[in-house]
Design a binder for these strands. Structure first.
Lengths: 194, 194
DNA sequence: GTGCCCATGTAAACCGTTACATGATTCC
DNA sequence: GGAATCATGTAACGGTTTACATGGGCAC
């Protein structure tokens, strides 16, 4: 067994690697560039890594024998590297899906953080920040509903996630409205405490 | 001006540094150890960094002159390093609060990711994963309501965030229930397509 | 003709995690 | 008696970001 590609048993891959494997598990043959675009459609619930990171993960998966490449020459442009998942890769991915422990979502909500520290800011600015976030959330729901029409019957599980995402953003919007109303009450309530 | 501590103008601190500064902006004199416990109460909306990271940020803030320390000797235990925010630190923090651009929350929802790839797993396991996440979300709401009783009038802004957090987890729970019901429908619907 | 899209890749910097080390005190 | 708490810190490792580089095709 010289230096042939031996699919190692427990590669202990980083989370991003599994995300890439999962995208490839849909069966298409795609480039790293394509993957990045797909990943951006998932940004609603899973933060997309930098583009350079995706290329790195693909190389790693290749070394582990979990994906395979086939080159497609292009004149005056870097050759296309079309990746496809291997049987070994599919097995590793399914093992991860079925056996990985359930972890909590990783959330860093900078807007909530700024509200938390509201005692150091002026209400005017705080209001701006919250409103801007609310607008952003509205945009996200719009983007998601657009996406969902594309998915619906063709990709049922992604469609479920899209529905979930819509509910999430809807909740954020009403939560912001509640906060905004509470801020009002705090301001006017300061002079008339019973 | 030899090598005295010159508070640099635009330190461009990492997000964690501002979180630490913000906690210190409540005015108390605390240790890194205390900060870590406080940060854990914020894990509902802002992922707590590792303990070693907090100590590192404190040293960095000290170098920038944004916090100051005073030692408290302890026998048979590392000396307490009690940190307090400086005027410069408070200024930097307020500048950040009032001028930092509004960024989207950073979310990596591993459970949603696994639902997204549902075509590669069996429904039984998928159900388990979702249910386990649901249970976790219920725990979080319980923890939050406990917290909120402590905060309420004393810390109004953190209380607002706690309320927001409760709404968030409640939304997650009903979203999971919807997904679970949809999965049922997908299973039974497979044989009786009209 | 300016700017975005394609398509890959390298390099440096660094945030952040994990693991380890210490050692008395306090709670069950 | 064992485990958790207090209280800080170091070292290794690696995931991730940011910046940079290339260069033709295509749309407005």
């Amino acid at each position: 067994m010289a230096q042939e590609e031996v699919p190692s048993q427990d590669p202990a891959l980083p989370a991003t690697a599994y995300a890439v494997l999962g995208l490839l598990s849909f069966g298409q043959e795609v480039t790293g560039y394509d993957l990045r675009k797909w990943a951006m459609n998932m940004r609603y619930f899973y933060w997309s890594p930098a583009q350079s990171q995706i290329y790195l993960e693909l190389r790693r998966l290749l070394q582990h024998g979990l994906v395979e490449v086939h080159l497609e020459e292009q004149k005056s442009r870097p050759d296309k590297r079309l990746y496809r998942i291997t049987d070994a890769g599919l097995k590793v991915f399914r093992d991860w899906l079925d056996h990985a422990p359930v972890g909590p979502p990783l959330l860093k909500h900078s807007v909530a953080l700024r509200l938390f520290f509201g005692h150091q800011t002026n209400h005017g600015r705080l209001r701006e920040v919250l409103t801007e976030y609310r607008d952003w959330a509205v945009e996200q729901t719009n983007g998601l509903t657009l996406l969902r029409t594309d998915l619906d019957q063709a990709l049922p599980y992604p469609a479920l996630v899209a529905t979930w995402g819509s509910a999430y953003f809807a909740a954020e919007i009403t939560a912001i409205d509640t906060v905004l109303a509470d801020l009002d009450r705090m301001e006017t309530g300061q002079r008339e405490q019973d």
